[in-house]
Design a binder for these strands. Structure first.
Length: 852
RNA sequence: GCCCAGGUGGCGGAAUGGCAGACGCAAGGGACUUAAAAUCCCUCGACCGCAAGGUCGUGCGGGUUCGACUCCCGCCCUGGGCACCA
């Protein structure tokens, strides 16, 4: 029903997305619309997207992150916020170094090339950033400060070196942090089967922050529950007791290095049922315990066999193997002498590496005791007191009553736990303790492409930190990459040989570099003073702008990056560098984009190896960036996974084309209707209804964007509004108030659309006679008067089933509504001959008559 | 085993305890066109019925309620996190 008059230039009638997209990208850049002056923090809104690793090119799956972030930034700007959206590059990392080994291209060259490509891609998507704050973690002006922060942590004892059993990735030729090993024992990055090796490595003492990291999760109201739950699981707090078991001296008079063996238990209430103790095979000093005893050979064999097992074999539930040591310990509660065993199911890294075994009340101990015919004793009775060793077929692990445990007998076991821990403390052989699963963060990597650890080894002075004035410790560029994967720093004399900063004698530089997760643990502070070469962070500015108001990124960083960044923030807080304890107030984790593989028809995350990658370039060429953006946001709830569907992209394009034509064809008289007012009392019914629909839409879209970012329903609402517009005839021939309605509707559609499809919105905004940029325009406001209805449609139900509907004055009272409902012929058909038991009236909505 | 999500048409997905399936995709039919593209109109959960209309339907089984996709209890399934963690 749209008038078909064609505009002056027929060309532009066909939504010239290519020209307008190039035009507006240039305009935003020239006008510096995303440059933010951080000296003014009134109404600040720090909108941050996880900075990408410059892997080469971005696909539409990556795009979701940036498109969501850009839509949020644009929306908040229109809501009057002073929005800061910086962007940078997590630019150190193994892929670039591995590529260098293959192709000979230096990692810095390939990385900077990739950055240039990806920057172009972000621009082509229409995403705006404050590029003056760009940080690139592989450049000395950034990693200088990463190294400086390392030194600060080192001074505080939060960075330390120790010999430990660590995860070794044989493919990437480096050690890894626990967080970077998947549950199946393979490396998160390379996929290699991780090996355990005893090596001397650098750690950050994240465990010192375990409790704070756990406690402060509760303050993070703006974080998804699942992310908080994952971090809670990972930290793995458990309360228990540490009990010292005296070691029974050897018969042959040979002295031991220790006279007690401590163990950690969460079930000290079961200790009267403890019938033996088990040590981890790697337990330090185990060999001296058994030296010269008849059991020595079997113990050595056992340890050797257990040592050959891989991490997965050791940590997979299943068969438990062990061996008797020939030694005994004493249970300090009942003074009973019990045998000391070694078992491969006991982990050195957890607790004390020793377990008090209570087969009657622990499923693992039950299995072990049965296998090796060890004694079993009940020390917790079930509430009915019917437990009997003769009839038990599995360990009783539930709560009950303590038995055979004078002076604790007959106590409910939960009450016995604190009492027994207190008793141990008074007696001096134990105490209540809290144990965490979280391990310290292993940060050294035996690779080249990372920030060098600023430490020097001197034969006389030992470990010496590089003086601050000598930072950055620069990565040498003249290096040779060997296929073995060995770090070129290890055989780079100029890099390694250095005088000791303390005594001046020849010394050796640390050749390990830092985990790239260190670089990304503090970049959000650096954005605020990215070009400052005098200090790592600008404390005053951080006070103003931190925390980040909205952080947006992938769920895959739920534990890794997000916990490391929280740890760094707390450590920097303790150093007085910043005054916020949590970096990210609101966290939004968008779901992955998947696509069906052409090979096997399964859904996979987009990746080159699966061959299901969709590049944005061809789509932008064919449909424009606005279409790709609109489709990406419309695909489904942004926090959920979504399957990419090439066909549906066209639907988004059709919609934009429709809006383009509607506005463009009528632009002349729409501009002329600039000052016309939509007088409510002068509007014919259809225009009045459209005007109501418009304001309902504004209300709903605004609600959808606040908080939960329901872009999909917001866009659906714009589509509905356009559909409603289709049902009326829009032309210049209408009276002024009606023209005003059409103008306001189309203008609002453009405004409401602008965070999602900003180029077309800018162009149409201008076509409607407004000055650019739409970013400076105000988000539409709801006109409460427009929402008013004189009449409402009411649903009529009989026994909960819809039987009809009637129009009622909005002011009708309950009685009138009930009356009208009973009089309705449809309703009468269903209540005829029945007794009406109850009538429910929901004002403005429905009537339900219960009849039977 | 423990802890989180989730299960709705052919598909993606909508629904403050109040009309289940908004919006879009796909499909089918039609209009315009020499033709195509583009655009527009109609149909589109299942079953019964010529129709009016009716019955069933949100993983399964119960419950609360005038009324349940929504709340409660018990299951099943899918995805994710943790797990020989003492």
């Amino acid at each position: 029903m749209w008038s078909t008059s064609v505009g002056a230039d027929g060309m532009k009638e066909h939504y010239p997305f290519k020209t307008i997209e190039a035009k507006w990208q240039q305009y935003w850049e020239d006008q510096g619309l995303f440059a933010t002056d951080v000296t003014d923090a009134r109404d600040k809104y720090y909108c941050l997207m996880m900075f990408p690793y410059p892997s080469g090119t971005l696909h539409v799956g990556h795009g979701r992150n940036y498109i969501i972030g850009d839509a949020v930034a644009r929306y908040k700007k229109m809501r009057g916020k002073r929005v800061l959206t910086p962007m940078g590059w997590d630019a150190f990392g193994l892929p670039a170094e591995n590529a260098a080994i293959k192709t000979g291209t230096h990692p810095r060259t390939s990385t900077l090339n990739n950055i240039a490509t990806m920057k172009k891609q972000l621009r082509a998507w229409g995403c705006g950033y404050d590029w003056a704050r760009e940080v690139t973690s592989c450049e000395p002006d950034y990693y200088k400060w990463t190294q400086w922060l390392f030194l600060k942590l080192y001074e505080r004892g939060l960075a330390y070196k120790k010999e430990a059993a660590v995860n070794w990735d044989p493919v990437d030729q480096t050690v890894l942090a626990n967080e970077q090993v998947l549950p199946d024992g393979t490396a998160e990055r390379s996929g290699a089967r991780v090996e355990k090796k005893m090596l001397s490595q650098w750690f950050f003492k994240i465990t010192a922050y375990a409790q704070r990291l756990l406690d402060d999760l509760e303050t993070l109201d703006g974080w998804p529950e699942r992310v908080k739950a994952m971090q809670e699981n990972w930290i793995g707090r458990s309360e228990g007791a540490r009990i010292e078991f005296p070691l029974v001296p050897r018969n042959d008079g040979v002295a031991d290095e220790t006279d007690t063996i401590p163990c950690f238990t969460t079930r000290v209430d079961t200790i009267y049922g403890c019938t033996y103790m088990v040590l981890a095979p790697e337990y330090p000093g185990i060999e001296t315990f058994v030296a010269g005893l008849p059991e020595e050979d079997s113990v050595r064999d056992f340890i050797a066999t257990a040592g050959r097992l891989s991490a997965i074999e050791r940590t997979t539930e299943g068969d438990k193997n062990g061996v008797f040591t020939g030694r005994y310990v004493v249970n300090p509660f009942n003074h009973e002498t019990i045998p000391l065993w070694i078992g491969d199911y006991v982990l050195l890294e957890y607790g004390t590496g020793a377990v008090m075994a209570v087969p009657a009340h622990d499923t693992r101990d039950w299995a072990f005791a049965h296998k090796y015919d060890l004694p079993i004793r009940i020390s917790i009775q079930n509430p009915d007191r019917t437990l009997d060793l003769a009839t038990m077929t599995e360990a009783y692990v539930d709560d009950g009553v303590v038995v055979d445990a004078i002076p604790f007998s007959n106590l409910p076991n939960r009450e016995a736990i604190p009492k027994m821990a207190a008793y141990a403390e008074v007696q001096g052989f134990g105490k209540a303790v809290v144990q965490y699963r979280l391990r310290d963060w292993l940060i050294s990597r035996q690779r080249y492409w990372g920030a060098p650890i600023p430490i020097i080894y001197c034969d006389d002075c030992g470990m010496v930190p590089v003086p601050e004035a000598d930072l950055p410790v620069k990565l040498p560029m003249d290096v040779e990459f060997k296929p073995s994967g060995e770090s070129p720093l290890k055989r780079h004399p100029d890099f390694q040989q250095v005088p000791c900063p303390r005594c001046g004698k020849p010394a050796r530089r640390e050749s390990d570099t830092m985990d790239t997760f260190v670089d990304s643990s503090w970049y959000f502070f650096r954005y605020l003073s990215a070009r400052d070469d005098a200090q790592a962070v600008d404390t005053a500015c951080c006070d103003q702008w931190m925390p980040v108001d909205q952080y947006i990124g992938g769920i895959e960083h739920a534990i890794l990056h997000l916990m490391y960044a929280r740890f760094f923030t707390k450590a920097m807080y303790d150093l007085g560098l910043v005054h916020c304890e949590e970096p990210f107030a609101q966290l939004f984790t968008q779901g992955m984009i998947t696509k069906r593989s052409e090979q096997d028809g399964q859904l996979y995350k987009m990746s080159k190896s699966k061959g299901n990658v969709v590049s944005p370039e061809a789509l932008i060429e064919a449909f424009g960036a606005d279409t790709v953006r609109l489709y990406t946001l419309f695909i489904g709830p942004p926090e959920k996974e979504a399957e990419w569907n090439d066909d549906a992209v066209e639907g988004a394009h059709r919609f934009l084309r429709r809006i383009w034509r509607r506005v463009y064809l009528h632009r002349d008289w729409l501009v002329a209707a600039r000052d016309a007012q939509p007088m409510l009392d002068q509007l014919p019914a259809d225009a009045r209804a459209l005007y109501r629909k418009l304001h309902e839409s504004i209300q709903r879209i605004t609600r959808d964007l606040e908080g939960a970012f329901h872009f999909n329903t917001a866009i659906a609402q714009i589509m509905e509004l356009m559909n409603a517009l289709d049902d009326v005839e829009v032309s210049a021939d209408h009276p002024e108030p009606v023209r005003a309605v059409y103008r306001e509707t189309l203008e609002s559609v453009v405004l409401l659309l602008s965070p999602f499809a900003p180029h077309i919105a800018e162009e149409l905004w201008q076509e409607l006679g407004n000055p650019p940029s739409i970013l400076n325009a105000e988000w539409p406001r709801v006109n409460e008067a427009a929402l008013h209805r004189d009449e409402v449609e009411m649903v009529l139900q009989v026994n909960g089933k819809v039987r009809g509907r009637i129009m009622m004055p909005a002011t009708a009272d309950q009685h009138a509504v009930e009356e009208a409902a009973r009089d309705n012929p449809q309703v009468q058909k269903w209540i005829a001959g029945k007794t009406i038991r109850k009538v429910i009236v929901v004002p403005g909505k429905l009537v339900n008559i219960a009849a039977g």
